[in-house]
Design a protein around this nucleic acid. Structure first.
Length: 482
RNA sequence: GGGUCAUUAGCUCAGGUGGUAGAGCAUCGGAUUUUUAAUCCGGUGGCCGCAGGUUCGAGUCCUGCAUGACCCA
């Protein structure tokens, strides 16, 4: 099928080889990229400098004894101009070139009468022969499935997609600069873990033959980073690729990137300031103003961010303290708002109510603080209310962007919380990580900890509607038929 | 897991009530020495996602399946 569309190109490949032209040579040293040619045009034109440059052919306009073509390099387009009068017999070789081929060219630059900067080619070299036709030049590649499955075509056809991932890379760099500037040590902890924990999620399981034991891909780094605080580091952080064996939708990819950061001697208030500073730093370095747009909504990032208390926000809507009502009252509220209660834990029901009734509507950057203890097994009990913990989430555009605690460092309380989780058959824990408890028993100083979903952060910073638009190769079901 | 929608040429898309499958771009041949979505003339290209069913006849109607998008759980 596709073979027939490739036939012509294979014929040209054969003809090129017959002309002793290597369609896949090894190297081409450019003197200028296209953007440098454009920047330095006046000087290059005046000095009649012969430049060497290269790119992928994206359009060809043949006019008998002349040819115009447009090349693409990573950042720019460049028109080239070839004349039979300049190239003699070599001119015919270009007949075997197609849209998609990479070529290198040498020549002087000039402006056409419409003012377009153009390379007047004196010599050209095939750098790679392309055997398949590219997506159409005008409409680009729209088919969202092909865009995700064959991202390379998306990147070739859609410049704005290239730009998104450049910006993602910039965000990653800014995050690194930020934590580096704050004196945090960037560390690497195991992806492959014998006991998983640190979040409420199902893990991917695998098997390690040499040790003859089951292993898990991490769902979070929390328990390892805290071990490092026990070990004496005072500020550690990590870019963590985490894996959660759950559904995938607009906000979830099974494999995703988090930042976790832990700082000794501080609490969740300290982390709140850190997060405010971080957001301000990111937006300042990405945009001229401090406003953010996501879909049809815009917000101002102004410190200090609004703070609301978890239980008080719910109380405003339900009229009661969610932690002071009994099971059947809780179930009644759930039913009233269409939340399934069957077989669900108390924590699930409370949190579901919260995200439906409160979180969804928090558009402006808002710290939701003081979570129920029952849904926060790794956070330290609130200093004023034993039913709560010192925890906050940062919500922007209704999305959870950051999650942070005053970290629980009482090993006896921690064991009790793990045991309760196990008894409730909650997700995220299959057995108690005894080594982690033991580490706490040696003593972890008071610590503030932070997690940030980097993909979601990129979504709101880059105004992309789906997590798949900020992940180069998002997970899709395997489809062999194509 | 449930609902809605989508799947037609390499790409982007048309194909009222069932009657021989279409356009633009790309591609191929021809013309063209400053074009730029080049232009002009002439061609090639289809398991209409897959499998059944209804019908004299299905891209179109029905069922199932696959993949994807969105919404819900």
């Amino acid at each position: 099928m596709y073979y027939s569309s490739m036939e012509e190109r294979l014929k040209k490949l054969k003809r090129l080889r017959e002309l002793k032209i290597n369609p896949y040579p090894y190297r081409f040293d450019r003197s200028h990229t296209f953007s440098r040619i454009k920047n330095d045009f006046e000087e290059l034109s005046r000095s009649q400098t012969i430049i060497k440059t290269a790119g992928r052919i994206i359009t060809i306009r043949r006019h008998g004894k002349t040819i115009f073509a447009t090349l693409n390099d990573e950042n720019e387009k460049m028109q080239i101009y070839l004349r039979k009068a300049d190239l003699g017999e070599g001119f015919e070789v270009f007949e075997n070139f197609d849209i998609g081929d990479f070529i290198g060219v040498e020549g002087k630059v000039f402006k056409t009468r419409t003012g377009e900067i153009t390379v007047h080619v004196e010599k050209f070299t095939l750098l790679t022969k392309s055997l398949r036709p590219l997506p159409e030049k005008w409409h680009g590649l729209r088919d969202i499935e092909i865009r995700y499955r064959k991202r390379y075509l998306d990147l070739i056809a859609n410049q704005e997609v290239r730009e998104i991932f450049r910006k993602r890379s910039k965000i990653i760099k800014l995050l690194r600069n930020f934590f580096d500037g704050k004196g945090f040590l960037e560390v690497e902890t195991p992806v492959l873990q014998p006991i998983y924990g640190g979040a409420a999620a199902r893990p991917f399981k695998t098997f390690y033959n040499a040790l003859n034991q089951e292993m898990y891909l991490r769902i979070a780094d929390e328990l390892y980073l805290k071990r490092l605080i026990v070990g004496g580091y005072e500020k550690v952080w990590e870019f963590c690729r985490d894996f959660r064996n759950e559904g995938l939708d607009r906000f979830h990819n099974p494999e995703f990137t988090m930042i976790e950061a832990y700082q000794a001697y501080t609490d969740y208030y300290g982390i709140m300031e850190l997060v405010e500073e971080l957001l301000e730093f990111l937006v300042k370095n990405l945009y001229p103003s401090n406003s953010l747009t996501f879909g049809d909504k815009s917000v101002e990032l102004k410190r200090p961010f609004k703070r609301i208390k978890y239980t008080e926000a719910l109380k405003e809507i339900l009229g009661v303290d969610i932690l002071k009502i009994n099971q059947s009252e809780l179930d009644r509220f759930c039913q009233r708002f269409g939340i399934k209660t069957e077989g669900q834990t108390i924590g699930y029901k409370i949190d579901k109510l919260f995200s439906e009734l409160v979180q969804k509507n928090l558009i402006e950057p808002t710290f939701v603080i003081d979570y129920p203890k029952v849904i926060s097994p790794l956070a330290k009990e609130h200093r004023e209310d034993p039913a709560l913990v010192e925890r906050f989430e940062l919500i922007i555009f209704g999305l959870e962007i950051a999650n942070a605690f005053s970290e629980l460092n009482d090993p006896i309380d921690q064991r009790k919380r793990f045991e309760q989780q196990l008894a409730q058959k909650e997700e995220g824990i299959a057995e108690i990580d005894e080594d982690f408890i033991e580490a706490l028993e040696y003593g972890m100083p008071p610590t503030g900890g932070l997690g940030i979903g980097v993909d979601r952060l990129c979504m709101i910073l880059l105004n992309q509607p789906s997590i798949r638009d900020v992940i180069l190769f998002p997970q899709l079901r395997r489809e062999d038929a194509r």
